[in-house]
């Protein structure tokens, strides 16, 4: 197991955000994490990244306890968190220099090329479209050469066409690199398309409610993926589960402990 999350709980004051979360990741596995907003997905990603500490339980990364951030577990955020003062190229170069590399320009250009960004090397983030910025974020994360990629809703703010294209182009690249990854998403087809398994997190407190295996082939194109038999049924199951979670949230003042 590359990652072991063991009985992890976290409170913010009286609010139980995560309760007794346990799961493991296999080498090269892709795990999708879904759940209604506010259920603690980002919090969990932060814990795995080492940006925060759990109140109870522990997280092991290749047997080592996660206690601080490390470039072996890089997060890609929804808002891409690119450095606005640096060009696309300089953003990628930063990740390489942080790894202790010298003469980073060539290598940075290579990562930009992987993401189809060569013409945008000298562009500043604010001049990039959402999809392009997210590509730079991915290039920067890949340049850090992490063991596990943590993607916290990186595609949520993109329009569907941009997202589909990005998914179709990025996933094969990630497969080729053999990356293990966790993808947080609201989108059911995204979760099923990317995930070997889908982990469903219920809110207040965040608990793993169920784990779905996705027994599908992984064709390159999303549209072909969705045509497979069984897809609609699994999609419907996930959808009604998510809707059920939404309903739980109605009495908004209640905190389930």
């Amino acid at each position: 197991m590359i990652l072991d999350v063991q009985n992890v709980s976290l409170n913010y004051g009286p609010l139980h955000v995560l309760k007794d979360i346990s799961f493991s990741l296999r080498e090269r596995e892709r795990l999708a994490l879904v759940g209604p907003s506010g259920c603690g997905k980002s919090t969990l990603i932060g814990l795995i990244a080492g940006l925060r500490q759990a109140c109870a339980g522990q997280i092991l990364h290749r047997g080592q306890r996660v206690e601080s951030p490390s470039r072996e577990r890089v997060v890609i955020f929804q808002n891409h968190a690119l450095f606005p003062w640096a060009t696309a190229l300089e953003n990628v170069e930063f990740a390489l220099r942080a790894r202790g590399r010298k003469n980073v320009r060539e290598e940075a250009l290579h990562w930009l090329e992987t993401m189809g960004l060569t013409p945008f090397a000298e562009t500043y983030p604010k001049q990039l479209s959402g999809g392009m910025a997210q590509r730079v974020g991915l290039a920067r994360a890949l340049a850090a050469d992490p063991d596990i990629l943590l993607l916290d809703e990186p595609f949520s703010s993109l329009d569907v066409l941009t997202r589909d294209r990005l998914l179709e182009e990025v996933l094969p690249a990630l497969t080729a690199l053999g990356k293990t990854l966790i993808l947080v998403t609201h989108s059911i087809d995204e979760a099923l398309f990317v995930g070997d398994r889908v982990l469903c997190l219920s809110p207040r407190p965040g608990r793993i409610e169920r784990v779905l295996e996705t027994p599908f082939d992984k064709p390159r194109r999303l549209i072909e993926f969705k045509r497979q038999s069984g897809f609609l049924e699994l999609e419907a199951r996930l959808y009604s589960w998510l809707r059920g979670q939404e309903d739980l949230r109605e009495p908004d003042s209640t905190i389930y402990i």
């Binding site: 990244a49 080492g50 940006l51 601080s68 951030p69 490390s70 470039r71 577990r73 890089v74 997060v75 955020f77 808002n79 968190a81 450095f83 930063f94 990740a95 220099r97 942080a98 790894r99 202790g100 850090a144």
Partner: peptide, 18 residues
């Protein structure tokens, strides 16, 4: 400074000087 940028820098393993 946006704390997220500091998180990113820390997560990538940047030294204090960097």
């Amino acid at each position: 400074i946006d704390p997220q940028h500091l998180d990113v820098a820390r997560a990538f393993g940047a030294t204090a000087g960097q």
